[in-house]
Design a protein around this nucleic acid. Structure first.
Length: 480
RNA sequence: GGCCCCGUCGUCUAGCGGCCUAGGACAUCAGGUUUUCAUCCUGAAGAUCGCGGGUUCGAAUCCCGCCGGGGUCACCA
């Protein structure tokens, strides 16, 4: 069987990490089995439609490298791939269901429906449509439609039937039809509901595996009933566990349900995001393997997707980001960092930027860390008085700084090697306390007690800036 | 509340009746290397396998009950 899976987002906003993971899993599954990944836009709710979100969704796929095989933008032979452009199809199939006696017209007003629900709840019953319109005669239906009355089409759920399926992730699941409502299939505005649209489209688009979040489990029997009503073959169903926040409640904005855009803006690498999301519900070896998309394709499959809900762990994301940053060639790292550099960043030269990137590489958790690590490159930056006074107290260190300053002024070559060799020589010759002196020099020249390697960083600076900074610090310590 | 699902170190998990005095990874802590930080290396702590009953010579693994968590009950997807 050819594997054909789909990612079917509704354009009601920007998908967060959870929805994005569903896309990833589908894509990975398709590619692992040499199948197709289809993107279908489910915009059947015009009220909740957010303009522009369709493009944002595609942009996220692009950022992550999840190329689709069929969609509204790349085409395909099962289009259109936007549900609002398939309205006539759904209406046709809804009618077919009515003719088959598997669905019926319902004229109940929203007010009546909510009243029915309220009464049922008061009686402690599960809210369910009371089938008020089930046995309307053909004539009456026709009359009311002609009269312009608003109607919906409902699925006639058979009584006392057990619907069960072998979920490729969750295992066997059985639900009795007495717990299933006569679901609305066609809304009064002529649009289909999700339930009709997915089933019709998944069938027409020859989807082999319906893989989605487990919030859809309770809807699956409705879909199966629909397939059976149409007499269609069932696809395989698989439901991924939902991602939970650190407090074990549903992942929400406040604990990380941000979008790929947000994480990228915070300095996370798309490949780290992919690697991280892959392990949200799926496992492989010790769950710390640093894997790219291509390696993931090779090892990803549904049998290692778990049933219990994973918790979003930002530390794990940071770990993967660090690892992926470490793996990047310095040139590539520099390129990525560039997007985060402010206008006035003093280093313009490509080679110097790459050099700095290399110095900072193992010290970054996110790309934005580069900024704080390289603060010292701003020529006007001055060491903080408090930091200076805390780190440079020892008179020996102050004396050493005086001598090092003189040495640097007369250095014939301004390279990291030359600086390091000469400074080391003088430090050893005087038997100065190494740690303290280097820290003093570091704070004076690089502003911060936490920095990339001292001499390499120094060499990036103009010699005059270095001299001036040491002079400034000496002045500060003198005043004290 | 009804229905469905889940429950192993803080977190992700391995485990599918004896190899488990429960293994690994992330995070944490300690030590080593190092001019800071980080990297790298070594080590430590951390789980009475949600609880209680069974079944069995033997259970994290099978069965039942309870508890806890999640999902879902729309003319939203």
């Amino acid at each position: 069987m050819t594997v054909r899976v789909r990612f079917a987002p509704s354009p009601t906003g920007i998908p967060h990490i959870g929805n994005t993971r569903t896309a990833l899993f589908n894509w990975l599954f398709a590619k692992h089995h040499g199948g197709k990944f289809i993107v279908r836009i489910e915009d059947t709710d015009q009220k909740r439609l957010v303009p522009g979100s369709r493009e944002k969704i595609m942009a996220i796929l692009d950022i992550l490298g999840l190329k689709e095989d069929e969609s509204y933008r790349v085409g395909g032979k099962y289009g259109p791939y936007i549900q609002s452009q398939r309205l006539d199809i759904y209406q046709r199939y809804a009618r077919q269901l009515i003719d088959l006696g598997k669905a019926y017209y319902c004229f109940c007003s929203p007010d009546r429906l909510s009243q029915v629900r309220k009464d049922q709840q008061k009686r402690g019953q599960a809210p369910k449509y009371d089938r008020h319109c089930l046995s309307l005669s053909k004539d009456e239906v026709e009359k009311r439609i002609k009269a312009g009355e608003a109607y919906v089409v409902r699925l006639k759920v058979p009584d006392d039937v057990k619907v069960s399926w072998q979920d490729v992730i969750q295992g066997s699941i059985t639900i009795k039809t007495e717990n299933i409502d006569d679901q609305v299939l066609l809304k009064s505005d002529g649009y289909p509901t999700y339930h009709l649209a997915v089933v019709v489209d998944d069938h027409l688009m020859k989807i082999s595996h319906v893989l989605r979040g487990s919030e859809w489990i309770s809807s699956t029997p409705k879909h199966i009933l629909l397939y059976q009503a149409f007499g269609w073959d069932l696809p395989k169903f698989g439901h991924f566990p939902v991602i939970l926040g650190p407090d074990k409640s549903k992942l929400a904005k406040r604990h990380g349900a941000k979008s790929v855009f947000d994480y990228v803006a915070e300095g996370y690498l798309p490949e780290a995001l992919v690697n991280f999301m892959a392990f949200l519900g799926w496992n492989y070896k010790d769950n710390s393997a640093v894997l790219g998309l291509n390696e993931l394709i090779k090892v990803f499959d549904l049998d290692k997707v778990g049933k219990s809900n994973p918790i979003f762990d930002i530390d794990k994301l940071k770990y993967f980001n660090k690892e992926h940053i470490k793996k990047l060639p310095a040139e590539e790292l520099a390129k990525r960092i560039k997007q985060f550099l402010p206008e006035d960043f003093p280093v313009k030269e490509e080679s110097v930027l790459i050099y700095l990137a290399r110095l900072c590489q193992v010290r970054m958790t996110t790309l934005t860390d580069f900024l704080s690590l390289t603060e010292f490159v701003y020529p006007d930056k001055k060491a903080d008085e408090k930091v200076v006074k805390k780190r440079i107290k020892d008179p020996i260190v102050i004396g050493a700084l005086v001598k090092i300053k003189a040495l640097l002024e007369n250095l014939s070559e301004w390279t990291p090697e030359a600086i390091e060799a000469e400074v080391k020589k003088i430090v050893e010759a005087h038997s100065w306390p190494k740690g303290k002196v280097y820290m003093g020099l570091r704070v004076a020249v690089l502003i911060n007690p936490v920095t990339p390697p001292l001499f390499e960083s120094m060499a990036v600076l103009d010699r005059q800036v270095v001299i001036d900074r040491i002079a400034d610090v000496l002045k500060l310590t003198h005043e004290a």
